[in-house]
Simulated assay, not measured.
Amino acid sequence: MIRYRFGQDDVLRTRFAIAPLMELIGAFYVLRRPERYVVHRRWLKWAASRVGDLDLTLLDAAAPFGGPYWPVFVSPPPREPHATIEAELSRVRETPPERVLAEITHRYPDRLPAAARPFAGDPAGALGELVEQMRALWDAVLGPRWVTISALLESEIASRARSLAALGSRAAFADLHPSVSWEAGCLSVRPTSKSATDVNLAGRGLLLIPSAFTWPTVWPRIDPPWDPALVYPPTGIGDIWEPADTDHGALKSLIGCRRARILQELDRPAATLELAARMRVSAGGISDHLSVLRRAGLVTRRREGRRVVYARTLTGDALCRPST
């Protein structure tokens, strides 16, 4: 059991984040042990054929399934509330080679398996290849579904943050997960692979990370360089891959032909100029329609460097996505 002990300021300093690399590792676990993850059966059916030709041997060595420890450099603690996969993979690539070697040997103290030996022989080179494998996996099975996944996670964060602010810690933590309980300033997680541990938050607060692919368990994080964190499956995870039967004619009648076309084009997130080029219309007109769709909760926007990228929300997905 792990007990997170809250002091006077720790509830106020509890915060949320979305961790793309945590989803990547979780999705890799689901692909390796499909029988354990019935919630993701539809996603697995779609994803399995997309990974058959990928070389993921270094990722398999660096993110082993099970065991008391797996290397932290593969999925470092998030620094932003909603980081991009590009930024997170850059952080992995920048890991010092000596840390890569230290964490790999910590995971395999007796003998390195063949797949892990490149990390000992050439840590920097193996790290670069590992990042390429992670990027290939993301592009194959997570990137095309990230709008759906992140919309669910954003909805979870908004709902739980409102409960925390309006109703207090007991309400916010009560239904976090069946293995998690709150009592008298202490958040308990049971059982875990770790021995009984008390973690005094000491003013640091707790980092809560909703994750689609951690289902059906929670992942407590207490080892450096992590501050105390808990990765948990969001509410509504059981419906994430449910298809929606869509009549695009009805959609056009509902929101208009141009807005329906924009929503359909956002199957791939895009900036205003990209959408205008795809549709061969003016950027100003696209921008006006995007503003309406955003106010209606059908699209979201985020900044990536100098670009503002638009993507469908879960509601927008439900309106557009046909049965699969």
Rank of each mutant, 00 (worst) to 15 (best):
T246P: 09
N200E: 14
D227Q: 00
L207V: 10
I222H: 12
P216L: 12
P228R: 01
W241Y: 13
G238S: 08
W219I: 09
R221Q: 03
I240D: 01
T217C: 04
P224R: 14
L208F: 14
P243N: 06
T214S: 15
V231I: 15
I237E: 00
L201W: 03
E242A: 08
L208T: 04
P224F: 14
V231M: 10
E242V: 14
L207H: 13
I222M: 13
L230H: 06
G236I: 08
V218G: 09
T214E: 05
G236S: 05
T217N: 07
W215Y: 12
P243M: 14
P234Y: 15
D227H: 02
D198K: 11
G238I: 03
P220K: 00
Y232Q: 00
T214G: 10
A212Q: 10
L230F: 12
W241S: 05
T217H: 02
I237Y: 00
P228H: 01
L206M: 10
D245P: 15
G236F: 04
W219A: 11
F213A: 05
E242R: 09
L201M: 12
T197G: 09
D245F: 15
E242C: 04
P224H: 11
D227L: 07
A244P: 07
P220M: 11
A212L: 15
T246W: 10
G236N: 02
S211D: 02
P216W: 11
E242T: 14
D227P: 08
A229K: 05
T197Y: 12
A229I: 01
A229C: 11
L207T: 10
D198V: 15
Y232L: 01
I237G: 00
E242K: 06
T246Y: 12
I240W: 01
I240G: 02
P220C: 02
A244G: 00
G236T: 08
L208H: 11
W226D: 01
G236Q: 05
P210I: 07
S211F: 00
L201V: 12
P225F: 13
G203D: 03
G205W: 11
A244F: 04
W219E: 13
P220R: 04
V199M: 05
W241L: 07
P220G: 07
L230V: 11
P234C: 15
G205E: 10
T235W: 00
L207E: 06
F213H: 01
I209D: 10
G236P: 04
P210D: 06
P225W: 09
D239F: 15
L206A: 08
P210W: 06
D239T: 15
S211G: 06
L201S: 12
P220S: 11
L230I: 08
P224W: 13
P228L: 02
D227C: 06
V199E: 03
P216H: 13
L208D: 03
D198W: 14
W241Q: 07
I240S: 05
I209G: 02
N200C: 06
I222D: 12
G205F: 09
R221W: 02
L206D: 04
W241A: 02
I209V: 15
L206E: 06
I240P: 00
D223P: 08
